[in-house]
Nucleic acid binder design. Structure first.
Lengths: 354, 354
DNA sequence: TTGTAAGCGTTATCAC
DNA sequence: GTGATAACGCTTACAA
């Protein structure tokens, strides 16, 4: 029943297949009467034009591929990617495109991935990557596949991207800790290969220097974004002769891990140690105590990147194609009492904790 | 440079396009010498056949669509779906297919979704749904789109599915609590529209009855799978004249919410109240105390469902097409000391908590 | 406003 | 082992 072609519909509606095609594509020059008759037949038989044939002739698929870092095993479980995906998906539906993400790319050789990309399944790509020297943007450019990037590598030459000012964000987080009176502030970094990490580190350094605080290499740990590495980093800090009184973690998951380590030592947050995260994933509101963190507007970043891509695909040129979003320090309970004028956006979402 | 067609490659390699096609598809009857020459040209120019043209002529896309419940806003953040997706993706790569999930389906009218499905983007669908009377399976059957379902509705007539024995799983969880001496055991259910919920509830009832314990309607709360609803349910229980000493939550997120409520009352887990979850998402090991829960083999369910689907697509018939996976009670810290012979699988993953 | 016909880039069926 | 040639199911000039 659903194997019908446009030809069959044409016959049933007593018109030519061009007319059916016009009806399908909302072409104006079809007599209303005919249009209705054709639609009737289409609906009656549950006909939908076959994507492949359409793609072949138009040379466009109206499909947008979303590429997350392949290294990330459980990428789907990462709420950061979920929010980005949410934004991408919304913009796509709004503009009449379909956003697709393909599973199992991590199990695939790079060659196969590249081939998949080259087969023109997608009109364009939203690339989520803050990896420095990521081969993907180079490949996409060489293969002339339009893309916009979420995150960017200053040493690459991404033409279109959205990102945040990581340096300023980290600076804001650390300054908050300083304003609360902390003098020994540790940092848990992410993988060095991510371009955002040196930036966040420099924000951390700048805040310390501005406050005239010493920079102690012992207070720097390198994590891998995962809970476990945050825990390990914190355990390391707690064994120091002079442990920190506050920690800035480069993402929320590692912050949660750090909190875990703190509890295991029988210490309290924020009384003994204050902690600031990064990202503002939904779980931060559920952790006890609720995590003070830097909010990145992931969803908007996803939709903006997608909008830029679609604009480009549709030839709407002369648009800005590099956007830096601003971050927000969201103050919850993990640093103790408020004593500064940091913005309080997000506070209304906080579940009160006894 | 990448706009080349098979025709161009043929010309450059001094062969016909049939030969290039044969090379591309590993057809045996090509002289090795010719084969190498053609491959050389292909690689040199970064040529890859255009998917649409291929799909049109073969009438197959080797693409498999994964459909998660549309109601789920942040579906991607749900680690259950992440694990399922992992399994689907792995099996697809193994069998030479590509698994795709499309974003923004939630913002889309059902009509549009159906049309998308009918356009034969996908050779088949892995449908993740335990919703009762879900319209999707009916649509897929009517549209003759092959699918396998993860979860199943006994009142529907899904031909191919994988699922778990929810009744037995819930029974196991509650029995564990009983074996630890609990007499007042509450349950936090999920949405009534999910077929697994009545099953889990009946497992709960059976365990209580077998132990000769009374069934108290006050000890039943209905949640919506989310953290907040687990918290609300627990708050309700804690206000009762005779609060429960143990809770069985129908998923891990609500269990975490319940723990939140318990802490807010200044109570302790497991000393004051014991708690068992369901699913065994990775976070259960990170919660404090680590959550005792029922493990569902999500990843295997995903890969099995996919294997069944692909077998069917490839005409490998006579296979079993309905598989019930077994669940495991994973004992961690949220119920206190072990006193029974429940299987200990998963214990090795547990981070010790002071 | 509608129909005819060409063509999109492949694979597959034939001959040779 | 290789090369013409005919589909595949659409969209889109161009005619009528």
């Amino acid at each position: 029943m659903s194997q019908l072609t446009i030809e069959d519909i044409a016959r049933l509606a007593h018109v030519s297949r061009s007319t059916v095609s016009r009806v399908l594509n909302d072409h104006p020059s079809v007599r209303p009467e005919v249009r209705d008759r054709v639609w009737g037949v289409i609906k009656e038989h549950g006909y939908a034009p076959q994507a492949a044939a359409r793609h072949l002739v138009t040379q466009r698929t109206r499909l947008i591929g979303v590429l997350f870092p392949r290294s990330n095993q459980y990428l789907l479980a990462n709420p950061v990617y979920a929010s980005i995906g949410q934004g991408v998906g919304q913009m796509c539906t709004r503009r009449g495109y379909l956003a697709m993400i393909s599973l199992g790319l991590g199990d695939m050789e790079e060659k196969m991935l590249f081939n998949m990309l080259r087969s023109r399944h997608f009109d364009g790509i939203v690339l989520v990557s803050s990896e420095s020297h990521d081969p993907l943007p180079f490949f996409l450019k060489e293969a002339r596949i339009p893309y916009t990037r979420i995150g960017h590598d200053p040493e690459g030459d991404d033409e279109a991207f959205v990102d945040v000012d990581d340096t300023e964000a980290a600076y804001k987080a650390v300054k908050h800790l300083i304003s609360l009176g902390h003098q020994r502030i540790a940092i848990i970094k992410g993988p060095a290969a991510e371009v955002c990490i040196p930036r966040r580190y420099s924000g951390y350094i700048r805040a310390l220097q501005e406050a005239g605080l010493p920079i102690d290499p012992l207070l720097v740990a390198e994590g891998d974004w995962l809970h476990t590495s945050g825990k390990a980093g914190m355990e390391h800090f707690l064994q120091l002769e002079h442990p920190p009184t506050a920690v800035f973690s480069c993402n929320d998951m590692m912050a949660a891990g750090a909190m875990h380590a703190i509890y295991e030592q029988g210490l309290h947050i924020p009384e003994d140690i204050a902690i600031v995260g990064f990202d503002d994933v939904p779980q931060t509101q559920v952790i006890i105590p609720a995590l003070t963190t830097i909010r990145q507007p992931h969803e908007e970043m996803g939709s903006k990147a997608t909008e830029m891509l679609i604009d480009r695909l549709e030839g709407k040129d002369g648009q800005i194609n590099q956007v830096i979003f601003s971050t927000t320090l969201v103050i919850r309970q993990s640093c103790g009492a408020l004593r500064n004028d940091a913005t309080r956006e997000g506070l209304q979402h906080i579940a009160p904790i006894a």
